[in-house]
């Protein structure tokens, strides 16, 4: 197994994408999951459905619409380009945005069941003690659902590493910018560099195994 500096760069980029995506998902996922878990709104099933859709839709659906929406000639892409000089096609921020949408259910669903697993009386008790919802969230709910937080973080991270279709469609395969490990494997296989593809693949297997293991380890530890 030979590890070139290009491979290291690609792997680091992959980890960078997964980390950025996970951080944003954590920040966005907590309020979304909170709303879904506790809101009496009638819109809730629609929101839940929308968030779950990346689980079943082919990534190409998302990739296709991102390509259409985010290209600088399109409405959204044009506005972003002229207002912030931001391009979401062929750029790292674009991959982050796509990954956030694509991995959303992997963060929101564990958090949602985490919120629901906490007895309602705990949040109510906190309210009777004069605490705001935000204080309750921070001090009572989140500390009470650490396993759910861990699941959400790990699953989003791992799922982003495993992302392929969306990146293939809107990434542009730029080394150091949008060429992540999954794309690199595809490329290497296509030019018959099986050894390089194997190196990437083995590293991904190792990385994902070692980040997923703690989640399930913890689960079985709690059962026994």
């Amino acid at each position: 197994m030979e590890l070139t500096s290009e491979m290291v760069g690609t792997l680091l980029l992959t980890l960078k994408l997964a980390s950025a995506t996970t951080l944003i998902l954590l920040a966005a996922g907590i309020p979304i999951a909170y709303w879904i878990a506790f809101s009496p709104s009638r819109l809730r099933p629609f929101a839940e459905t929308l968030i779950s859709m990346p689980l079943v839709l082919p990534p190409t659906v998302l990739g296709f619409y991102f390509l259409i929406a985010f290209n600088p000639a399109g409405a959204v892409g044009g506005a972003l380009a002229s207002l912030f000089d931001l391009r979401l096609v062929f750029s790292f921020p674009g991959l982050v945005v796509a990954s956030v949408v694509y991995s959303l259910p992997f963060m929101v669903q564990p958090l949602q069941s985490g919120f629901r697993s906490i007895p309602a009386s705990l949040a109510e008790a906190s309210a009777t003690l004069g605490k705001s919802r935000f204080q309750t969230l921070l001090r009572v709910l989140l500390p009470g659902m650490k396993p759910a937080l861990l699941s959400g973080i790990v699953l989003s991270f791992a799922h982003t590493i495993g992302e392929f279709g969306v990146v293939l469609m809107i990434g542009g395969n730029i080394p150091g910018v949008t060429r992540v490990a999954s794309i690199a494997i595809y490329d290497e296989v296509e030019v018959l560099h099986y050894a390089a593809a194997n190196t990437y693949a083995l590293i991904l297997i190792g990385v994902t195994f070692s980040i997923l293991l703690p989640v399930y380890w913890k689960r079985s530890a709690r059962i026994w």
Binding site: P72, V89, I174
Partner: peptide, 21 residues
């Protein structure tokens, strides 16, 4: 400024959708 398509088909797709100028 170069972005890489998987084949000319993807290049066509990038150019046609104006994602690349």
């Amino acid at each position: 400024k170069i972005v890489y398509g998987e084949s000319v088909a993807q290049v066509n797709q990038y150019v046609d959708s104006r994602a690349a100028e």
